[in-house]
């Protein structure tokens, strides 16, 4: 995480949103690691990612962030903050924008369309990452939310539905194992 040099004390609402976004980011990173080994569409997409690519998702200027790395064909969740000098960063300009995206109120494409998020690094890698992030979101968010924020509602195979159920059931364990990383 970047050093916090903010001048004004943040409001309670800001701090609450920041906490929610921080929690959602950890859930996202941990879920990404799991589904990257099990979902065939994601596995196929990841073949197109450069091995060793480090991706960070974060909030500007001093908000929460997480980092992930493609390792041995899968995604490894590295933990909170900008780790291993990420070559690709997807950054939200402020906590409000990140809150909208991470609470299922806004799709990734809308966040980019409204200049709420930006890419530092290769734009092609950013597009690939954005597409896979959308696939990961289908495991995290309920169908009713996905239908609202996606251009087209996702279609699940039976195997994907089972995986989503399994991830929901084991979520508390997955989250607690990753929250201090």
């Amino acid at each position: 995480m970047e050093k916090n040099e903010s001048v004004h004390k943040p409001s309670l609402a800001y701090r609450l949103k920041k906490a929610v976004v921080g929690t959602a980011l950890i859930a996202f990173g941990a879920t990404f690691e799991k589904v990257s080994k099990k979902d065939e569409v994601i596995i196929e997409e990841l073949k197109d990612w450069e091995e060793g690519l480090v991706l960070s998702l974060g909030v500007l200027p001093f908000g929460p962030a997480i980092s992930m790395k493609k390792k041995d064909g899968y995604v490894k969740y590295l933990g909170r903050g900008y780790k291993e000098d990420p070559s690709l960063k997807i950054l939200f300009k402020n906590v409000d924008s990140a809150f909208l995206a991470f609470t299922g109120q806004m799709g990734n494409h809308t966040a980019f369309a409204q200049h709420r998020a930006l890419v530092h690094g290769s734009l092609i890698d950013g597009i690939k990452a954005n597409r896979v992030m959308g696939l990961v979101q289908t495991y995290l968010l309920p169908g009713i939310v996905l239908n609202k924020i996606f251009k087209r509602p996702p279609k699940y195979t039976f195997k994907q539905l089972l995986l989503k159920g399994y991830l929901y059931l084991t979520f508390p364990i997955t989250f607690s194992m990753n929250m201090w990383k």
């Binding site: 197109d48 494409h109 980019f112 369309a113 734009l123 092609i124 950013g126 597009i127 690939k128 954005n130 597409r131 996606f150 251009k151 087209r152």
Partner: peptide, 13 residues
């Protein structure tokens, strides 16, 4: 084409 940023801003998926 699907890795081009323009496709992200297209109304249709």
């Amino acid at each position: 084409a699907i890795n081009d940023g323009s496709c992200t801003m297209n109304p249709e998926d």
